[in-house]
């Protein structure tokens, strides 16, 4: 067994251990609290834990399938996220071809460029080519009703759901001396730290949360949850240094940056939900809401993490 796959096995066993403990706690809470009828908070917690099992197994299978498996997984995430996003934005019939090309041209091309490892064009395809070509496709129908709003929303949807999401699998393309063949662990590091930060903010908030941090955006987020979640996720990130090319201090510093970005990204995506008058982005994942509800923090941290690692650690 290579070093990468033995590290991966250790990691997966560790995550299964955490999930087994979580499932046991959820089961116990259900027995304790649900004696007089079902308890909504506990039911939601258990639905979330069950969904976590499914997500961990799915990501694990993609890792086993290798590069192509990871690319397909995140291409699917982009597709489902873009579908949720565009469902909530203002569109008109004149946007039909622009929207169709967002799904059936821009998205596949972005992931193809990643597969072909064409980094130069990969990093500007959506910010330059899609940015200029999409409004041209829309304008040709001659409908000017709220035109700027429409083209801006479609571009935002593409940036968030395709461009940012694709920076998670883009970690596979980095060429880090002494870390060859282990890049998949960088994806594991990013996803684990950011998602754990979300989970720990939720747990700390439920246990000790008193002071609301952003009552207009997200009534469930508290200062205590934020501080406890970010601090504990940073420590866990530092403790995971052995799966990364970083030293423990560097791993902790990077964890701090991505958990902070994740938290702030969650606020931005909450603001969009408030603006659109919805509670969740969709119903794809039971207990969690839509895919974007689970992915929002990863979306905001992935490109920053990618570029920091690329700038200081990578050759290419």
């Amino acid at each position: 067994m290579t070093a990468a796959s033995s590290d991966l096995v250790t990691l997966v066993l560790g995550i299964f251990g955490v999930l087994i403990v979580a499932s046991a706690v959820g089961c116990l809470l259900e027995r304790r609290l649900a004696t007089d009828g079902p308890n909504a908070a506990v039911e939601n917690l258990n639905a979330r834990i069950r969904a976590w099992w499914a997500m961990v197994i799915l990501i694990g299978l993609a890792f086993i399938a290798g590069r192509v498996g990871v690319l397909f997984l995140f291409a699917f995430c982009s597709f489902a996220a873009l579908r949720e996003f565009i469902t909530l934005i203002y569109t008109r019939r004149a946007d039909h071809w622009a929207l169709a090309s967002a799904f059936f041209l821009v998205l596949p091309i972005q992931y193809y460029l990643l597969w072909a490892e064409e980094y130069g064009i990969f990093s500007i395809f959506i910010p330059v080519y899609a940015f200029l070509l999409m409004p041209i496709v829309s304008v040709l129908r001659g409908d000017t009703e709220r035109f700027l709003l429409r083209v801006a929303e479609v571009q935002w949807a593409l940036m968030i759901c395709v461009f940012c999401v694709s920076h998670v699998p883009a970690l596979l393309t980095l060429d880090i001396p002494g870390y060859e063949g282990r890049n998949v662990l960088l994806i594991a590091f990013l996803v684990i730290v950011v998602q754990l930060s979300d989970v720990l903010q939720y747990v700390w908030g439920k246990l000790f949360g008193r002071t609301k941090i952003a009552p207009n955006l997200s009534p469930s987020k508290t200062v205590e949850g934020f501080v406890g979640g970010v601090a504990s996720a940073t420590l866990i990130g530092a403790a995971l240094w052995w799966i990364t090319p970083f030293t423990p201090v560097q791993a902790g510093l990077l964890s701090f940056i991505i958990t902070l970005m994740g938290f702030l990204g969650g606020l931005v995506m909450s603001a969009i939900k408030r603006d659109r008058g919805v509670k969740d982005w969709g119903q794809l994942i039971e207990g969690h809401g839509g895919l974007i509800d689970r992915l929002d923090s990863v979306v905001f941290s992935a490109p920053i993490f990618f570029h920091v690692v690329r700038y200081w650690w990578s050759l290419s």
């Binding site: 469902t87 019939r93 039909h96 969709g282």
Partner: peptide, 18 residues
């Protein structure tokens, strides 16, 4: 709800929407 946005009259390519 929403199917009219997926495939408006006269269009041949459906847009994925929930």
């Amino acid at each position: 709800n929403n199917l009219n946005r997926v495939m408006p009259k006269g269009e041949i390519v459906p847009i994925p929407l929930i």
